[in-house]
Nucleic acid binder design. Structure first.
Length: 945
RNA sequence: GGGCGCUUAGCUCAGUUGGUAGAGCAUCGCCCUUACAAGGCGAGGGUCACUGGUUCGAGUCCAGUAGCGCCCACCA
């Protein structure tokens, strides 16, 4: 074995072996255990969030596979409607083409080509991470099985009246020319103005204070062209007399009513609100109550139409309603129109005032364009009947959120859930299975033929399929059962619904989690998963969101393979939306990374993710941690090297020789069991941070730092018998082999590599560690007296090391040790374990001194009542030793004060549990005794000086 | 406006029925001792954001304050 662990040498090799072995597929035996991957965008690439969540999922999957469960990690990718279409349109734009140039069919063909070409990127990257998902079942949300499920669900929901079509206001994205759902709108606070305009009262009416106009305030002056009412609060005394009267809407010369509606806030603005039902969600509701017509003034680009259209609230066109667009406005972009409106009002003397105002601006989450409420025909899911069972599933505990608190977020949304707009005016996605006749009547069926027979349509009725596609999340919502073959009654459906746990981020609880619960409940009667483990979101080390524009993105593959600084800078500064940031990002990147990023390997990265997976909602990714865990991998590697060097070509008892176990052997076995107990518990609680910590501490602090050192005197010492040597060799290989199995789910590669070499020495045969059984906790293997005895040895060794360290005694120099004032138990421990003490503390001799024996001047350490004495005989600096002891005295005095204060408090002695009080008394006694001993030592040193 | 979360060592974070504060990285000192310098040994470093309450005892429970952050929501 090489002296340093080199992950690049082994990772790819093992992954290929595993994948071709077929072990990623369910074994068909044992309890079902299933995780559904949140399908990443098929044309995307792996980011830190994926890598994190996939690590968690793979750890669970490997763990359960080794526990003997029938384990399925259902993998696949999402067609990601808007995102993917955007990418391909951008590529076309580079050739000065639009999708319209190609036409629908050719464009969709192009997207499929792009999918074929780039669709493998993320799945290849997942392989680099070691993900053991069942690739043979890899699904895609646009493949035949999924499409079939989508169609089936749509038709069934339509037939039940849960899916309906309606003309309503939707969130319209004027850049992509499509409707989007409420969830895809991000409200951002932006600075704007509140314009105050005068609306002249019609027919000679006047306000209470004699004015012939009222003032309305608006943040969107361009919508004035669509105003069909002005609203005031019914109890607003300023305007009460005007209710029922009219104003003459400037520019359009349309007479519109003043209505009373308690939606209006008297305190805000002027207390008069212009009502534009076709371009504002609130105004729609107000307008509906007062039957104010809907006047649509915008085109799909959010420019002013040539001619406005008026509708009533049933979607019927109001041909007679006069809503002509004033001259000079047609075709203007909404912002240009806004400026013109303001200018025209000013010219007319109707601009009252302009005030600064911050407002919530709705923007599309993909396009970042300002979203317009827009009157269109769309398909909706009436979610109420679906939401109820979905809420109950969580309330009853059938589905459990981890951490539990996220259920509150879930409820909050579910209790207020709105109908879901599912149609999108895109080309890439599931085409809506609806056909229209010439009159616009819609027929929903699985195919045109079925539509004809289902609705008894004559053969000569011309039918045209709906042009729209479904929201991507519609097909994602079916993921838990569509991927398993629904609506066919497959064995997989039977076995793996509900799945065991969903691992995902809180950012898609509404988009995805809630909708999966609704749809899966509806169509299978089961919940989609029993637990939902919500992970934190990965941020950079200062808590900033990783983003291209901030230039702080880390690519998980770069952490695995390493990257030089020039490539990293190039990656971070290429293709920027704001090229002027490149300089700054380059500078910061160079400062932060110097030469670049080292290669840490997959296992180190995976272990880091596990170690960072605490319950917090944001996870700051600290590169220092990866480095630390890379070192951990190296530690494991070298421990294995040591074990193999001392066991290969030796009898390790694997074929039956007699074994005698040392105290150290019993101890490490016991500590391993305790580690197992912790690990199992923490994994059950999804505390990967604590599980990984238990693993780390056992391997580094116990197995390496103590046990391997304790094995040295046994293996090399002449005083040890063959049986004892064999016992220790057996323990070395057996523990290492078990530890590799324990660590495998988190660190699959290094554990496989080492296991392959060590397993035969432990008498175990198998093709791969990934199908070996996972070690289970066995209380019978815990030997508490061995643990106690070894703790004593550790304390003695630490005491001597402290003296050595502080007194600057060379680690190469052997020293004699005297033990004084020890108990009989300690004497026995010494007799049995002298070799361990001598070896670990580098002692030339150990002498047991009785009470009253003469003692030389020494450096001293205390282990409870036992005094450890290293005779000073010319090798120790008296002043330094005195200073060291005084520091100790100071520390003990503080303890003593605290103990005294507590015990002097009668309330403490009376009310605290007896055990606590006794413990405090015992502490005090020990501290006092220690202090007494130290003061004797100090006096002795002073007498020398 | 409603809901949620965070504040512990220089940095990134643990702290599980309340019982004398922990890790990694960073810092300081000594060591290339044949598993490992990506290492070993030793050391230093914290009024647990603030205020009050409950309690014999609070990082931990309760109330409030400040700062930071997230989500939802129709104030023109």
């Amino acid at each position: 074995m090489d002296k340093a662990y080199s992950p690049a040498d082994i990772e790819q090799k093992w992954y290929q072996t595993w994948e071709s072995s077929g072990h990623f597929a369910p074994s068909g035996e044992g309890n079902p255990y299933c995780i559904l991957i949140p399908p990443p965008n098929v044309t995307g690439s792996l980011h830190m969030g994926h890598a994190f969540q996939h690590t968690i999922m793979d750890t669970l999957i490997r763990y359960h596979r080794m526990l003997g469960d029938n384990t399925l990690w259902q993998t696949g990718t999402d067609h990601a409607g808007i995102a993917t279409q955007m990418v391909v349109e951008r590529m076309l734009a580079a050739e000065n083409k639009t999708r319209q140039d190609l036409g629908r069919e050719a464009f969709v063909e192009k997207v499929w080509e792009w999918k074929e070409q780039s669709g493998g990127t993320i799945t290849q990257q997942m392989r680099r991470l070691g993900n053991s998902c069942d690739w043979s079942r890899e699904a895609f949300t646009m493949d035949d099985t999924c499409s079939n499920a989508v169609q089936e669900v749509f038709v069934q929901l339509f037939d039940e009246g849960i899916i309906y079509r309606g003309k309503r206001l939707v969130n319209w994205d004027p850049k992509f020319h499509t409707a989007i759902s409420d969830l895809e709108v991000e409200n951002k606070e932006e600075k704007g103005s509140l314009w105050h305009f005068k609306y002249p009262l019609a027919n000679g009416a006047t306000t209470a204070d004699g004015k012939d106009y009222i003032v309305v305030a608006t943040t969107r002056p361009e919508t004035i062209l669509g105003d069909t009412a002005v609203a005031v609060h019914p109890e607003d005394e300023r305007y009460q007399s005007l209710v029922g009267k009219t104003v003459m809407l400037p520019l359009t010369n349309r007479e519109i009513p003043i209505v009373a509606d308690d939606y209006v806030d008297k305190e805000f603005g002027t207390g008069c609100v212009k009502i534009t039902p076709a371009h504002d969600f609130n105004d729609y509701e107000v307008g509906k109550r007062h039957n104010a017509p809907l006047v649509n003034i915008l085109t799909i680009d959010a420019s002013i139409r040539d001619a406005a259209e008026a509708f009533d609230y049933k979607g019927q066109s109001l041909c007679d309603f006069d809503c002509s667009i004033p001259a000079g406005y047609a075709g203007l972009d909404r912002l240009t129109a806004r400026a013109k409106i303001i200018a025209d009002f000013e010219t007319l003397g109707l601009l009252d005032s302009i005030k600064d105002h911050t407002l919530q601006v709705p923007r599309g989450d993909r396009s970042n364009a300002v979203i317009e409420p827009f009157l269109t025909d769309q398909w909706y899911v009436a979610v109420e009947s679906l939401a109820k069972p979905a809420i109950e599933a969580v309330e009853s505990g059938e589905i459990k959120f981890v951490p539990e608190n996220w259920s509150k977020t879930y409820y909050q949304w579910m209790y207020n859930i709105q109908d879901w707009c599912i149609s999108r005016q895109l080309w890439w996605g599931h085409r809506i299975p609806a056909w229209y006749d010439q009159h616009g009547n819609a027929y929903v069926a699985r195919s045109e033929d079925e539509a004809r027979s289902k609705y008894k349509l004559d053969a000569n009725v011309e039918l045209r399929q709906d042009e729209d596609v479904l929201d991507t999340w519609f097909s994602s919502a079916l993921w838990p059962f569509a991927t398993l073959g629904w609506p066919e009654k497959t064995k997989e459906l039977e076995t793996f619904v509900p799945s065991s746990v969903l691992v995902t981020g809180f950012d898609i609880i509404f988009f995805w989690v809630a909708r999966m619960i609704m749809m899966t409940k509806k169509f299978t009667g089961e919940v989609p998963f029993k637990e939902i483990y919500i992970t934190g979101l990965i941020r950079d080390e200062h808590g900033q969101k990783m983003s291209k524009s901030k230039g702080n993105v880390l690519d998980p593959i770069d952490l695995i393979d390493g990257i030089d600084i020039e490539s990293l800078v190039a990656k971070r500064t290429s293709g920027m939306m704001q090229p002027q940031m490149a300089e700054k990002i380059s500078k910061r990147t160079r400062k932060e990374f110097g030469e670049g990023i080292e290669s840490f390997g997959t296992d180190a990265l995976r272990f880091t993710f596990c170690a960072l997976a605490s319950t917090s909602r944001d996870i700051n990714f600290d590169l220092g941690r990866v480095e630390g865990y890379r070192n951990f991998c190296n530690k494991i590697w070298n421990a294995a090297r040591y074990v193999l060097m001392n066991t290969e070509e030796h009898d390790c008892g694997q074929s039956g020789g007699e074994l005698t176990f040392s105290l150290a052997d019993h101890w490490i076995q016991s500590r391993f069991q305790q580690t197992l107990q912790t690990y199992h518990k923490q994994i059950k609680d999804y505390r990967f941070d604590l599980a990984s910590k238990a693993l780390y501490e056992f391997i580094w602090d116990e197995y390496c730092s103590w046990y391997l050192e304790l094995s040295k005197p046994v293996l090399t010492g002449e005083a040890f018998s063959d049986n004892e040597k064999r016992g220790t060799r057996y323990t070395l290989v057996s523990l290492l082999e078990q530890v590799m199995r324990l660590a495998h789910p988190m660190m699959p590669f290094i554990t496989e590599e080492i296991w392959q070499r060590v397993a035969p020495l432990a008498g175990i045969n198998g093709d791969t560690i990934m199908t070996q059984s996972f070690p289970l906790f066995d209380t019978n293997k815990v030997n508490q007296s061995a643990v106690d005895d070894l703790e004593w040895i550790k304390e003695v060794v630490l005491g001597v090391r402290n003296i050595r360290g502080e007194m600057n005694i060379s680690p190469a120099k052997s020293v004699p040790l005297l033990m004084h004032n020890g108990s009989e138990i300690e004497h026995q421990r010494l007799i049995k374990n002298e070799a361990f003490l001598k070896s670990l503390a580098k002692l030339e001799s150990i002498e047991w001194k009785q009470q009253g024996d003469e003692l030389p001047v020494s450096a001293t350490a205390l282990v409870n009542q036992l005094e450890l004495l290293i005779p000073m005989a010319g090798l120790i600096d008296v002043a330094a030793e005195k200073a060291r002891l005084e520091k100790e005295v100071e520390r003990l005095n503080k303890d003593k004060e605290r103990c005294n204060a507590k015990l002097a408090n009668p309330a403490f002695v009376d009310k605290a549990p007896e055990a606590v009080v006794n413990k405090e008394r015992q502490n005090l006694a020990e501290v006092e005794s220690s202090l007494a001993k130290l003061s004797v030592q100090i006096e002795q040193l002073e007498s020398l000086a």
